[in-house]
Design a binder for these strands. Structure first.
Length: 179
DNA sequence: GCCAACGTTGGC
DNA sequence: GCCAACGTTGGC
């Protein structure tokens, strides 16, 4: 049975790494996520040798795979909101920052053989013609179930429904594959 | 800059 | 295993 394409939302502070940066770079490693739930999504669907074991609940949850798409969200921005689309290229990549003593994401307990944190490689797909702001998302009935809108939700990597993804992409006047 | 909400750590 | 203290996220 073919796996359906899954859709995600990933947050980044534009002062740190913006959609313009991704457009410039073409591809990047989505490093620095230090949340177990987000990590589990980024580890992908197959077990990683030497990688952390997922709990049964995490195994039952959806995970990323190459070819999935995500909404690029600018957090701590004015206004906060979705600004474009990008594609998951590679999953379960050990986050190199955990091995770098000078990085704020250094993890002394991690080793190359047994990494603790994983990231994904992503590629630029499109920039929206305009920001679909958090305020606007709040006002859309078809988007009311989004994890983004749930009280206290801070998850920086989260699944979204295909319908939600398409709705926001339409509001941003952007399609997969368009510039 | 404030602070609510949440996640993690560590003493017991 | 509990839970208080602490740190972080991210909108406002």
């Amino acid at each position: 049975m073919a796996r359906p394409t899954r859709y995600w939302l990933m947050k980044s502070e534009p002062d740190v790494y913006s959609i313009e940066n991704l457009k410039r770079d073409g591809r990047t490693l989505w490093t620095g996520v230090r949340n177990y739930q987000a990590r589990n999504y980024m580890m992908g669907e197959t077990e990683i040798p030497g990688g952390p074991k997922k709990t049964p609940a995490a195994l039952a949850a959806p995970s990323m795979a190459p070819g999935d798409f995500f909404l690029f969200y600018h957090s701590n921005a004015e206004p906060p909101g979705c600004v474009g689309l990008a594609c998951i290229e590679k999953v379960g990549v050990p986050d190199p920052e955990q091995f770098d003593k000078k990085s704020e994401y250094f993890e002394p307990k991690a080793t190359k053989a047994k990494p603790m944190w994983f990231c994904v490689e992503v590629s630029f797909s499109s920039r929206f013609e305009r920001t679909v702001s958090l305020d606007e998302i709040r006002g859309e009935k078809p988007l009311e179930k989004m994890i983004l809108l749930q009280k206290g939700s801070r998850l920086s990597v989260q699944p979204v429904e295909a319908k939600e993804f398409e709705h926001i992409a339409k509001l941003g006047k952007s399609k997969i594959g368009s510039k």
